[in-house]
């Protein structure tokens, strides 16, 4: 239990996917203009991450490893993630058109999100078991949501401020992302070796 908590907290804060491992930077900068949409995006990513972690775990351990086909990891995981996102999209469209509309373009965006691919590839490397893999995926999703919502909050504030022309838009966003990454480095000492 303690081990799982450590994995979770470690992924959310210390090894945050966005701010420490620099995965999923594209939606982090692209979809962080409003807190609402940022949160929806975070939730969608968390969901797909957890699903993908489960499916890829089985494929890795019961298909690729027994057949000695580990080198096909990347290809098969891409297949899993793309199909999963499609499935989620079809499902959402039927069950909750409102949520489908709200997520809109984000769902297809998740397909090509490196954070999810990175997660799927990191799980075998870390040697997690099934439960640990799920907790790890949840932590990664929550960490992503945390980073993107924080960023969106900051950017909403910045809309009101009088900034030099040259810094507006992308420039100040990148500076803020850098500062946030440095601030998150402070967590590195919290959880020991």
């Amino acid at each position: 239990m303690e081990n799982l908590l450590l994995i979770f907290a470690g992924t959310v804060l210390v090894n945050n996917f966005v701010l420490a491992q620099f995965l999923g930077i594209c939606p982090y900068l692209g979809v962080s203009r409003q807190v609402d949409t940022a949160f929806s995006m975070g939730m969608a990513v968390t969901f797909v991450m957890t699903m993908a972690a489960m499916v890829t775990f089985f494929i890795q351990n019961y298909l690729l490893i027994p057949l000695g086909l580990e080198y096909l990891q990347t290809v098969s995981f891409i297949l899993v993630i793309a199909s999963l996102v499609q499935l989620v999209e079809i499902f959402l469209r039927k069950v909750s058109p409102v949520l489908y509309r709200a997520l809109g373009i984000f769902l297809p965006l998740i397909t090509t999100n490196c954070a999810i691919m990175g997660l799927a590839l990191l799980i075998p490397r870390e040697g997690y078991n099934f439960i640990e893999a799920i907790v790890f995926a949840l932590g990664a999703g929550v960490g992503f949501t945390l980073a993107i919502v924080l960023m969106a909050g900051l950017r909403e504030q910045l809309e009101m401020s009088d900034m030099p022309q040259a810094l507006r838009g992308g420039a100040i966003t990148l500076i803020m992302a850098g500062l946030m990454a440095m601030a998150f480095m402070g967590f590195a000492g919290v959880i020991g070796t």
Binding site: L63, L64, L67, L72, S76, L79, S83, L87
Partner: peptide, 14 residues
């Protein structure tokens, strides 16, 4: 075979 199988399963599922 493995990749073909995976692709077929996902395609059928979708």
């Amino acid at each position: 075979l493995t990749m073909g199988f995976l692709g077929a399963v996902f395609a059928a599922g979708l």
